[in-house]
């Protein structure tokens, strides 16, 4: 069960009405609507940070899925496992980003290995980045791409903590898809009943 009230079209504030006009907007909007003035700026930032940009969708999904795995966010791992598959990541790549197998078994392209190590240092550690991680990433990736991906990582970390802290439920559709694709939904044990 989510730890806070998830609003729907009948309970949502009038200033959030437009977010519910097209049907169920999902638990993140339903939770954020408790503070309706946050919806516009927060979703605007998330949309810009996670949506299309200069970075390819493949590499944005690296950042989102890897960050979510590092922060142990069931909701985002579930959701972005399906997104990553949809944008063309291979099954083994998704499993490696989820932390279920060694990165080297799935990624051989040096630029991508450098990028994932950089993501790990950005999202999974504190303090300055190790020089070798930075140098390797900077050798392949331009400043503006790393800036954009840092926003992707930051927005994902917010969503990770938001979804985990409030125990937002994974939708039944996503869980079904994951099971169909052979992904472990065991980590969803305590959310499965809440969808």
């Amino acid at each position: 069960m989510p730890r806070i009230q998830l609003l729907d079209a009948s309970t949502a504030p009038m200033t959030a009405e437009s977010y519910f006009a097209g049907g169920d907007p999902g638990p993140i909007v339903a939770a954020l609507a408790n503070v309706p003035e946050l919806l516009g700026p927060t979703l605007g930032f998330i949309g810009a940070a996670l949506g299309p940009g200069a970075t390819t969708t493949r590499h944005k999904e690296f950042a989102i899925l890897r960050t979510s795995a590092l922060l142990g966010c069931r909701y985002c791992i579930h959701a972005h496992t399906t997104v990553a598959l949809d944008v063309g990541l291979a099954d083994v790549e998704v499993r490696a980003l989820r932390g279920e197998m060694a990165l080297e078994e799935a990624f051989t392209e040096p630029s991508e290995v450098a990028l994932i190590r950089w993501i790990d240092a950005m999202a999974g550690a504190t303090g300055p980045l190790p020089d070798d991680v930075w140098t390797a990433a900077r050798g392949f990736w331009a400043d503006h791409l790393l800036v954009e991906l840092s926003a992707t990582i930051g927005a994902t970390m917010f969503l990770n903590r938001f979804a985990t802290g409030f125990e937002l439920p994974t939708s039944a559709g996503v869980l079904e898809r994951l099971e169909h694709e052979g992904f472990d939904t065991g980590m969803a044990a305590d959310t499965a009943g809440a969808s």
Binding site: S10, T11, P13, M14, V35, P36, E37
Partner: peptide, 8 residues
């Protein structure tokens, strides 16, 4: 009731 909530 939050239906007539404007802002927090």
């Amino acid at each position: 009731d939050l239906d007539l909530l404007l802002t927090r």
